[in-house]
Simulated assay, not measured.
Amino acid sequence: MKKVRLGKTNIIVQKNGFGALPIQRISYEESDLLLKKAFQQGIDFYDTARMYSDSEEKIARALSDKRHKIIIASKTMAKNTRDFWEDLHTSLENLKTDYIDIYQFHTPAFCPAPEDGSGLYEAMEEAKNQGKIRFIGITNHRLAVAQEALKSGLYDTLQFPFSYLADQREIDLVHQCKEKDVGFIAMKALAGGLIHHSDAAYAYIGQFDHVLPIWGIQKERELEEFLQYQKASPVLNERIESIIERDREELMGDFCRACGYCLPCPVDIDIPQCARMSLLLRRAPNSMTSTDEWKRKMLMIEQCTQCNQCKEKCPYELDTPELLRKNLEVYQTY
Rank of each mutant, 00 (worst) to 15 (best):
Y155M: 01
L158K: 06
Y99H: 09
E220A: 12
Q273M: 12
A109K: 11
R325V: 07
A127M: 09
I59A: 13
Y316V: 05
A38Q: 09
H175C: 11
S242D: 15
M124R: 00
C274N: 14
L173E: 02
E238K: 14
A201T: 11
S198G: 12
D181G: 07
I195G: 05
G206A: 12
E224Y: 07
R296V: 02
R325C: 02
Q303E: 09
M51T: 03
F135H: 15
M124A: 12
I71C: 08
I138K: 01
I138W: 00
E122W: 01
Q104F: 01
S242Q: 14
P213G: 06
L280E: 03
G193P: 06
Q228R: 04
D87W: 00
V145Y: 10
E56M: 09
K188Q: 14
T107F: 12
R221W: 11
G193H: 10
I11P: 01
V13M: 01
S64M: 12
E220D: 04
E317M: 09
R61C: 12
E329Q: 11
D172M: 13
T76K: 00
L34R: 08
R246I: 03
Y52S: 03
S91H: 04
W294P: 01
R325M: 04
E249A: 12
I72Q: 07
K37I: 13
K66V: 06
Y28E: 10
